[in-house]
Design a protein around this nucleic acid. Structure first.
Length: 856
DNA sequence: GCAAGGTC
C-alpha cells in the first residue's frame, strides 16, 4: 500500500480528478491518495548572477562588456525561485507532502515537455527525495483515461531525472530561451546605448518569439513601402452576371501588355462571344473545423484587441460557460461530442439559430480526435439563459465571443454546404475559360460562414448568362500583405512558433496597449487592424535584422535538437552549444547593425526621443556610498550642481515648482526609498528624491457618505468658495445650489453635486472628485435637442440661417450625415452642404455646429 | 534591466 500525492497542473484539472477518483482525498484501488494542484509554472529561473559561483557573480551581473558573451552555460546551476503571487500554491503543496510515498505528476501532457517541467520543478524545489511517478492521460475529462494512466505510471525519482526524455526536453527549451534571451537583450541594450539610443533607460528586450514578431511586422511594412505597382493590361471577357473569362498566363505570353494602349488595340480583335458550358457538377463542403482562440482573434481583429478577447474569454471560462482557452485543438473527442450534443438545441435558441437546421447529429470524422489537449474552444453544458445575460455579464465582446463560438459548434451539426460548380469556355475563343461555384443549399453557412476567417472574402456568384463581352482588364503585381493579426498568426504557424497559450498573449504584450502592464515595453502597436513598430520596436528591428532569433528557422532547428535530446537525454548539453552558436552569430550581426541605427530614418523618427534619464553621481553622506539620482526631480524641477551637492550632503533644497498647475514651494531631499520590483516581487532599496509638498489649502478632505470613502475635492467652484455647511451637504452626496458668475460675467444659479470626473493629461486619464454642475436645462422653444450617433445628447438652434430644420433634416443630422440644404438669402436661394460637427469651436468654446460647403 | 512557458 502506497500513499500517493497526485499533483495536477491547475485547479480545474484537480476538480475533474476528484470527480473521477471520488474526492480530493480517498482510496484508489487500495492506495490512499490526496490531490493537490499548481497554477501553471510556480517557479522560474533565478537571475544569472544568482545561479553562479561567487567568483563569477560580477561577470554574470554585467551588461556592458560584450566580451562576456556567450556565457559558459555550464557555469549556471539553474536554480529556481517561486514566482511572485504563486506562494500560496507552493505552501499548499508543501503542507500536503508529509506522510506520502509518491508524488504523482499528473500535469498536462504537452509535446513540449512543459507539463513535465512544471511538476518536476515543484518536487525538486520542495526537496522531495522519494518516488516520482509521471502519468500521461489522453485528455483530462474522461475517467477511463485517467484510471488507465494510473495503472501504468512512468516511475522515477529526482536522482534519475536526467534520464526522463520529456522532462529534459522541456528543461532544454527553457535553457535555450533563457540564455539567448537574456544575453542578446544585454548585447542589444549595450549596442544601442553606444549609438546614443537609450530607450528611456530601459533594456531592449530580445527573444525567440517576440523578436520574430517585431521584425516580421517591420519587414512586412518595409516591403509594402517599397512595393512598386506594375500594372498590366489584357483582354478578358465578362458576362452580364459579372463572371470573368480569362486565359492562363504563362511568362512570356504576348497577349499581356504593360500599357493600356496596346491592350486597347488588341481589343479590336475580339467581339461578343457565346458561352459554352463544359461541365456542371454538384459539390459538397463540410462545415469548417471548430474555432480556437486565435481564430476568434482573427474574426474580431478590427473590433477588439487581442487583450480584450483573451481576458474576456478567461472570465467566461472562469464561470465555466466556455471551454478551456489555451488550446490549439480544432476538434474534440467523441466523449466531448456526446456530452454536449443534448444541449445543442438550447444553445441554438440562445444564439438565435433555428434548431431545425441541426439535422446532422452523427459526428463527422474531421471533428473527432482520439486524444486531445483540452479540445477545441466551444460552449459548455452550462448554457446561459439568454444572450442578453451574456452581454450584461461580459459586455459586447463577451456576447460576440459566445455567439461566434456557439455558431461554430452548431455549424458542425448542420448539413454540408452544397454548390454547383460550372466550367465554361467561349465558343470562338476556347482559351478563355471560367469556373464558378453557384450556391445551391446554404445549410451550415446559414449558421456560421467560414469566409469570416479569410482575409479575402469570396463573393457570391450567379450562374453564367448566354454571352460575354470583351474588355480591357487592368491588373497589377500583388502588393505584399498587410501585417494584420491574421498575417502574424499565420506566419507563427508556419514556423511552429509559440504555443496555443502564448501566441495571442505575446502579441498582446508586444502592443502599446500593454502600457498599463509596465512589465513589457511595447514594441508594436495596432492601428485600424494593421501592426507597426513603436520606437523601441524600430530599435529592435534595425539591430536584430538578420539575426537567428529574428528568424523562424531557429525554432525549427531548436525543435529538431530538442527531439533528439528527448530520444537520448544524455545529449542534453547539446542545447548549450546551440545557444552559444546562436548568440555568437547574433552578436556579430548586431555589432554590424549597430552603426546603422543613426542612419535609419525610422529609428531616428520613432526612437530619437527615447533618451536616457539624465543622472548625476556622487557619494551620499548618510550611507557613504556612490549614488546616481536623476537630475530632474519628478515634480519637474531640474536641479543645478549646487543643489545636487547640497542634497548629497544630506541637506534639503527648496525651489518653486509649476508642475501642478500653480506655482508652489517644494522641499526635496535624498533619502532611502523602497520599491517592489514588479517581476521578481523582491523589494529594492535605493537612494532617490523625496519631495515635501506644501500643505494643500485648495482642497478639502472628508468622507463621501454614499460610498463611505475618503475623498479630496477643490474647495471652490469658479468664484464661489464653499462654506462649511455646503461642504457637509456635498459630502452627504446631496445637491447644492448657489449664485455663481459665468465666464461672461452674468450671474446665474448653479446647481449640482459631487462627482468623480476625469481629465486627460497627455495620454493619461486622471480621475478626480469635484463639484459637477447639472447641465443647465435648454429652452426647447429655441433649441432642438437630439441624441447624436455617439449616443450623447446635443442641442442647437431650431432656426439656422433663417431656415427652420425639417424633421427629415434633423434625422440626418442626428445620424451624423452630410446633406444639401437650400437657404433663402437676400439675393435669392443658395445651397450649402451641411455636415454636423459636435466639436465645432468658436472663441475657445465647443458646441454642436455645422461645417458648410457651397454647392452649385 | 533581460525569455518563454504555464495559469489566473
Amino acid at each position: 500500500m502506497m500513499k500517493l500525492l497526485i499533483l495536477n497542473e491547475k485547479k480545474s484539472q484537480a476538480e475533474k480528478f476528484a470527480d473521477y477518483l471520488g474526492g480530493m482525498s480517498g482510496d484508489f484501488e487500495g492506495n490512499q491518495y490526496d490531490i493537490v494542484y499548481a497554477a501553471g509554472h510556480l517557479l522560474q529561473l533565478k537571475s544569472p548572477n544568482e545561479m553562479v559561483d561567487k567568483s563569477l557573480v560580477e561577470k554574470y551581473s554585467d551588461w556592458k562588456n560584450l566580451d562576456n558573451f556567450p556565457w559558459n552555460a555550464t557555469d549556471i546551476n539553474w536554480q529556481k525561485y517561486v514566482s511572485p503571487g504563486k506562494e500560496k500554491y507552493i505552501k499548499n503543496i508543501r503542507n500536503a507532502i508529509p506522510g506520502h510515498d509518491v508524488i504523482v505528476i499528473a500535469t498536462d501532457n504537452d509535446p513540449s515537455g512543459e507539463g513535465d517541467v512544471l511538476g518536476w520543478e515543484i518536487a525538486e524545489y520542495l526537496g522531495w527525495n522519494k518516488a516520482i511517478w509521471r502519468i500521461r492521460f489522453k485528455g483530462d475529462d474522461s475517467a477511463n483515461y485517467v484510471i488507465d494512466a494510473l495503472h501504468k505510471p512512468e516511475k522515477a525519482n529526482l536522482s534519475t531525472q536526467d534520464t526522463q526524455g520529456m522532462l529534459v526536453k522541456g528543461k532544454s527549451r527553457q535553457k535555450f530561451d533563457f540564455l539567448t534571451g537574456l544575453e542578446e537583450s544585454r548585447i542589444a541594450t549595450n549596442l544601442a546605448r553606444q549609438e546614443g539610443f537609450y530607450n528611456k533607460g530601459k533594456a531592449i528586450s530580445i527573444g525567440r518569439l517576440q523578436t520574430y514578431i517585431t521584425c516580421l511586422v517591420d519587414s512586412q511594412n518595409k516591403a509594402r513601402t517599397n512595393y512598386v505597382k506594375k500594372p498590366f493590361y489584357e483582354v478578358r471577357y465578362k458576362d452580364a452576371n459579372g463572371n470573368v473569362f480569362k486565359r492562363n498566363y504563362q511568362e512570356g505570353d504576348s497577349w499581356r501588355f504593360d500599357n493600356e494602349l496596346s491592350a486597347k488595340k488588341d481589343l479590336n480583335d475580339y467581339s461578343t462571344d457565346q458561352i459554352v458550358i463544359d461541365s456542371t457538377e454538384d459539390k459538397r463542403k463540410q462545415p469548417p473545423k471548430l474555432v480556437n482562440l486565435a481564430d476568434l482573434g482573427k474574426i474580431f481583429q478590427s473590433k477588439y484587441t487581442t487583450d480584450q478577447i483573451t481576458s474576456t474569454y478567461q472570465k467566461m471560462y472562469d464561470d465555466k460557460i466556455v471551454s478551456y482557452p489555451r488550446t490549439e485543438d480544432n476538434a474534440i473527442t467523441i466523449d466531448d461530442f456526446n456530452e454536449l450534443l443534448p444541449y445543442a438545441d438550447k444553445i441554438a435558441r440562445v444564439v438565435g439559430i433555428d434548431p431545425e437546421l441541426l439535422t446532422h447529429r452523427e459526428p463527422r470524422k474531421k471533428f473527432i480526435i482520439k486524444s486531445e489537449d483540452h479540445g477545441a474552444n466551444r460552449p459548455t453544458k452550462l448554457v446561459p439563459k439568454s444572450i442578453e445575460e451574456v452581454t450584461s455579464k461580459y459586455g459586447e465582446c463577451g456576447k460576440d465571443i459566445y455567439l461566434q463560438l456557439a455558431k461554430s459548434y452548431l455549424a458542425m451539426l448542420a448539413e454540408d454546404y452544397v454548390y454547383t460548380q460550372i466550367k465554361a469556355h467561349l465558343a470562338n475563343h476556347s482559351e478563355f475559360i471560367s469556373t464558378i461555384n453557384v450556391p445551391k443549399e446554404q445549410n451550415y453557412k446559414l449558421i456560421f460562414d467560414d469566409e469570416s476567417l479569410k482575409e479575402d472574402k469570396a463573393e457570391v456568384t450567379k450562374s453564367f448568362s448566354d454571352e460575354a463581352n470583351p474588355l480591357v482588364y487592368q491588373g497589377s503585381n500583388t502588393p505584399p500583405a498587410k501585417p494584420t493579426l491574421t498575417f502574424i498568426l499565420n506566419n507563427l504557424d508556419k514556423w511552429n512558433l509559440g504555443t496555443g497559450a502564448t501566441k495571442m498573449q505575446t502579441i498582446s504584450k508586444l502592443q502599446a496597449i500593454g502600457n498599463e502592464n509596465k512589465k513589457v515595453i511595447p514594441q508594436i502597436k495596432v492601428t485600424k487592424g494593421i501592426f507597426h513598430v513603436t520606437g523601441t520596436g524600430a530599435l529592435v528591428a534595425c539591430l536584430a535584422k538578420d539575426t537567428y532569433l529574428s528568424s523562424g528557422k531557429i525554432t525549427k532547428r531548436l525543435q529538431d535538437i530538442l527531439n533528439e535530446i528527448k530520444d537520448d537525454p544524455a545529449k542534453q548539453d547539446m542545447v548549450y552549444s546551440v545557444a552559444a552558436k546562436t548568440i555568437e552569430h547574433d552578436k556579430a550581426i548586431m555589432i554590424k547593425n549597430a552603426p546603422l541605427l543613426k542612419q535609419d530614418d525610422q529609428v531616428n523618427k520613432l526612437a530619437g526621443d527615447l533618451k536616457a534619464i539624465e543622472r548625476f553621481s556622487g557619494i551620499f553622506v548618510k550611507n557613504n556610498e556612490t549614488v546616481n539620482p536623476p537630475i530632474t526631480i519628478f515634480d519637474g524641477h531640474k536641479t543645478n550642481s549646487e543643489e545636487q551637492q547640497k542634497a548629497l550632503a544630506g541637506e534639503k533644497i527648496t525651489y518653486l515648482s509649476n508642475k501642478f498647475g500653480k506655482e508652489e514651494k517644494h522641499i526635496a531631499y535624498l533619502a532611502e526609498q523602497t520599491y517592489k520590483n514588479k517581476k521578481t516581487g523582491k523589494e529594492v532599496t535605493r537612494i532617490s528624491w523625496k519631495v515635501e509638498f506644501p500643505q494643500d489649502t485648495d482642497h478639502v478632505e472628508g468622507i463621501y457618505l454614499p460610498l463611505n470613502q475618503k475623498i479630496k475635492f477643490k474647495k471652490e467652484y469658479g468664484q464661489h468658495a464653499f462654506t462649511e455647511e455646503e461642504i457637509i451637504t456635498l459630502l452627504a452626496g446631496k445637491e447644492l445650489s448657489f449664485e455663481a458668475t459665468d465666464k461672461q460675467g452674468k450671474s446665474y444659479t448653479a446647481t449640482g453635486k459631487l462627482a468623480e470626473q476625469e481629465f486627460k493629461e497627455g495620454q493619461r486619464k486622471v480621475k478626480f472628485w469635484g463639484f459637477k454642475p447639472n447641465s443647465r436645462p435648454v429652452d426647447t422653444s429655441v433649441y432642438e435637442v437630439i441624441t447624436y450617433k455617439d449616443g450623447k445628447e446635443y442641442h442647437f438652434k431650431k432656426i439656422y440661417r433663417n431656415h427652420r430644420w425639417t424633421p427629415e433634416e434633423l434625422k440626418k443630422i442626428a445620424a451624423g450625415k452630410k446633406q444639401i440644404v437650400a437657404f433663402n438669402g437676400q439675393k435669392g436661394t443658395y445651397r450649402l452642404e451641411i455636415k454636423p460637427n459636435p466639436k465645432k469651436k468658436f472663441k475657445g468654446k465647443t458646441f454642436f455646429g455645422f461645417d458648410e460647403k457651397f454647392v452649385k
